[in-house]
Design a protein around this nucleic acid. Structure first.
Length: 256
DNA sequence: CGGCATGTTTCGCC
DNA sequence: AGGCGAAACATGCC
């Protein structure tokens, strides 16, 4: 589930608890730095930012970093903003909680990080300086500069968080589909119109997907990814390949 | 049951 | 040096 789009949705949710003070906290110590609870209890939540796929909660103490891995999600005051919007078979199981921040002594957690697969992490003052251009700040010029002369497949380069911060596997396939670019092409082989179409696809499609509920809500939905039906644009059968170790779904007819 | 999964990091081999 | 693939992490789901 979690790519930059989901992180942005959760960032926005967490804004509703800014101003409160953490009166108690619990964390799964396997995914957090030593001493985490002691450092955040008593802290006042002062703001919430996002850097790529990472949510950053600023306090009058340390900044709390939320990293979601493959299956992490956030619930604010007991509600998940995303699960209401999409079919989700995953249940709300407290045994998968990795972080709970309480702002009321006797209430439910204000912020919960719930992550069955436990690939997510909770960090303090995370270093985000190596991240590339954010998904919501992409322009053709920045895209060109970010891609550089890299010879790797464009799909692989798009997933590199130091190039574009916040794109995940599903969104990368989606924007390449919209831009009509073969995911296997070397990034350095893209010409100016290619880069412009790619930047435009990121700028135009990601907000649409986010309004619909996130990375699952593109043309290349999970169902489409698993069944590879005819391409919605031209009817040619979609194809599935492994590129850079990740599954890529694409249309060999219009993506060139 | 076998295989796959929205992510990241590490290790070994060119 | 840098690119690349495989493995590891951990567990639910089809």
């Amino acid at each position: 589930m979690p790519e930059g789009l989901e992180a942005e949705i959760w960032r926005s949710e967490i804004e509703t608890v800014v101003g409160r003070t953490v009166v108690d906290a619990w964390v799964d110590e396997r995914v957090a730095p030593p001493g985490f609870v002691g450092l955040v209890v008593g802290a006042r939540l002062e703001g919430v930012r996002r850097a790529g796929k990472i949510v950053l909660i600023d306090t009058d103490g340390p900044t709390i970093g939320l990293h979601f891995g493959m299956t992490g999600r956030v619930l604010v005051d007991g509600v998940s903003a995303i699960d209401r919007l999409q079919y989700s078979s995953s249940r709300d199981d407290a045994q998968w909680d990795r972080l709970r921040l309480f702002t009321d002594a006797a209430g439910m957690p204000a912020v919960r990080l719930n992550d069955p697969r436990r690939l997510g992490r909770v960090t303090l003052d995370p270093d985000v300086s190596a991240l590339g251009v954010d998904i919501f700040a992409v322009t053709p010029a920045r895209m060109r500069r970010a891609l550089g002369e890299r010879r790797q497949a464009i799909k692989t380069v798009l997933l590199d968080q130091a190039v574009v911060a916040g794109l995940g596997n599903m969104c990368a396939d989606e924007v390449l589909w919209w831009a009509g670019i073969d995911p296997r092409r070397p990034a350095c082989a893209l010409d100016e119109p290619d880069v412009a179409r790619l930047a435009t696809a990121i700028r135009r499609r990601l907000p649409v997907m986010m309004r619909r509920g996130g990375s699952h809500r593109g043309t290349l939905s999970p169902m489409v990814r698993s069944t590879c039906p005819p391409c919605e644009r031209d009817g040619y059968p979609l194809r599935r390949d492994t590129i850079g170790g990740r599954t890529a779904v694409w249309c060999p007819h219009h993506q060139r």
